[in-house]
């Protein structure tokens, strides 16, 4: 009963961000986001994009998601330790954002590396909404 209610609410609240299709991981992040902040009002691809490009000062340089993933997530990137990184955008790399454990692992590591904190469920959902919308 309560599950149906949450799913129904999730669908309504997320409509603006999900005009085309719903990424499978968003429903779960919506439930979490509502637990973290009762005023949760859906995910925003715009905010997700801003998160990707936000620059944070680190050791005299700036750090952002683009440091490794480049300014175009459809392109391959490179880590500071010289490893190639496969493209992040699911439109060119369909394996991305399919395995929740992997997704959580990399949010945990990379949010800490870039923002020196954990990302919220709101931010994760925003980000997935944006990255999944890139064609």
């Amino acid at each position: 009963m309560s599950t149906h209610w949450i799913v129904a609410l999730t669908c309504c609240l997320s409509l603006p961000a999900l005009a085309e299709s719903t990424h499978p991981l968003l429903a779960g992040y919506a439930v979490q986001a509502r637990q973290q902040a009762p005023q949760f009002a859906g995910f925003s691809a715009e905010r997700g994009k801003a998160l990707y490009f936000a620059e944070v000062p680190r050791n005299g340089k700036t750090m952002s998601c683009t440091t490794c993933h480049t300014a175009d997530p459809r392109q391959p990137g490179k880590t500071p330790a010289h490893r190639n990184v496969a493209p992040l955008a699911p439109s060119v790399n369909p394996e991305r954002f399919t395995d929740l454990q992997k997704v959580e692992k990399w949010f945990r590591r990379n949010c800490d590396d870039v923002y020196a904190r954990a990302c919220t469920a709101q931010e994760k959902g925003d980000f997935i909404s944006w990255i999944d919308s890139i064609r």
Binding site: P80, K105, R108, R109, D112, D113
Partner: peptide, 12 residues
């Protein structure tokens, strides 16, 4: 691993 040469490389 949480502070692996400047990166968080933590594992479960």
């Amino acid at each position: 691993l949480e502070q692996h040469y400047g990166s968080n490389a933590s594992l479960d």
